[in-house]
Design a protein around this nucleic acid. Structure first.
Lengths: 255, 255
DNA sequence: CGGCGCGGTCGTACGGCGTACGGCCTCGTT
DNA sequence: AACGAGGCCGTACGCCGTACGACCGCGCCG
């Protein structure tokens, strides 16, 4: 019987949570808790101490409430994280940007990078299931709006956005890993490499991997290690935008 | 005293593990276990059932050995995963590819995609710390070799590779999420959307987010949902390569 | 040849996690 | 005044990674 499912997959429950469908309680003194309050403290915890520190016990504690009380409002931790993600999307700016599509798209990339810098836990939050909340919807609509009219098909427009956001997420993740490493080891990225390099040389046959050594060293010392991720973000972003320009120009020529 | 560290950060131990520095035991009958055997079954488990199924108890069981015996060879789970990653890199092909740099780079992208398809757990394995094993080293050297001579600086060459590999990882992750979703829910991606769409429409004000609706629908039905990730990979890869071409051409012109 | 040390093995136990279950208390309604 | 439902939450279960220390058999040294 492969048709039986472990559940947790009830679309109605999960979506209703995301969209906050809940008739207000008729009680006079409203309940002490609410999805919003829970999500707010959960985001605060994750922002300050990372996803690992976000436990249900911790959330209850921060709310001055028993652990299990949280479950009155949220079906489980996965759903809580989903709401956290949608909420974070909701706080992004959606300005009307003057200028051409490249300016607009670049701005979108930077705004997304800023989001990940503010909420690094989003980079580690694994959600096998798409979130589909109201704020993600609004974000998607806004971002598409910046590039719908550049002469590509709808499918291509979607792919362009996916490409840019994917690059931002990659770069943000790389940057976040450096920060995590520094927090965990108490050394800067440069110090970490300095402490590992001697050992590495012990194992490496001299003269092996000359290209890797040269390029790695160059990349390492050019940007004083602190700016590596930023450079990768900028360089990659310009390359991606250049690449998009090529198709856009092609289409414009064939019109 | 902020200088005290929780350890787990001993470079010598971790690197020695990666590089398999270990004098062979003088005992007659060699030990039942070895790092290699452990890594092999661990990769098998992760390949077949995902990272969540990879527990130390499970590894011991698969080896017919007590859980704690594994710790004789491996300091902890994080280190085990690191060795698994380096081992996986080791099985990648490193052919000499005929053709121009674009052909070579495209090949590299596809080989990396294939790696992630064979070992989807690599996409979820969070290693805040770089792996620095011999096979990663060899891979890095090989991949750099494909593009060192295209007329860019060493720093740019590194950034190019980072960009391409980042795109591959993003696309692979998206594809893997679809697969996970199908395995978890027992529905195809299309069925999942069909089961959620009615609920979504309930919440959405009619006429809200017209762009998102149109583009999303177009993107969804064009590629019958099954080919979405593949399309995103291909489209993005060509855009990225186009973008790299632009800089390469610029440099060639200014020579 | 006898004893010892040591490397490999692993049973037990601890502290942490997510969360199922069922009881209790408080309130609005009848 | 009695009731029922909704919010709250203590306890407990089954997982996880892994610290600790005991056991055991082999190779070496006296």
């Amino acid at each position: 019987m492969a048709s039986e499912r472990k559940a947790t997959a009830d679309p109605a429950r999960s979506l209703a949570l995301l969209w906050r469908t809940r008739e207000p309680t008729s009680r006079s003194a409203g309940p002490a808790l609410s999805v919003d309050r829970i999500v707010r403290v959960a985001i605060d915890i994750a922002d300050a101490e990372g996803l690992d520190a976000l436990t249900m016990r911790r959330v209850g504690e921060a709310l001055g409430v028993g652990t299990m009380s949280v479950y009155t409002y949220v079906p489980g931790k996965a759903e809580l994280v989903a709401v956290m993600i949608d909420t974070a999307y909701g706080e992004m700016p959606r300005p009307t940007v003057e200028g051409d599509w490249r300016t607009r798209l670049e701005r979108i990339a930077r705004d997304n990078l800023a989001l990940y810098q503010r909420h690094p836990w989003m980079l580690r939050a694994e959600t096998t299931r798409p979130v589909l909340g109201p704020h993600l919807m609004a974000k998607y609509d806004y971002e598409l709006g910046a590039i719908v009219d550049i002469g590509l098909t709808d499918v291509e427009v979607d792919a362009v956005l996916t490409l840019v956001l994917g690059h931002v997420k990659s770069a943000a993740r790389a940057a976040s890993e450096v920060v995590d490493l520094e927090r965990e080891t108490g050394m800067t990225d440069g110090q970490w490499w300095q402490s590992h390099a001697p050992w590495l040389e012990t194992f490496l046959k001299p003269g092996a991997y000359p290209t890797a050594s040269r390029v790695g060293t160059a990349a390492g010392q050019q940007h004083g290690a602190a700016y590596g991720p930023e450079y990768a973000f900028e360089f990659g972003l310009q390359r991606v935008l250049d690449g998009i320009s090529v198709v856009v120009a092609e289409r414009a020529a064939n019109r």
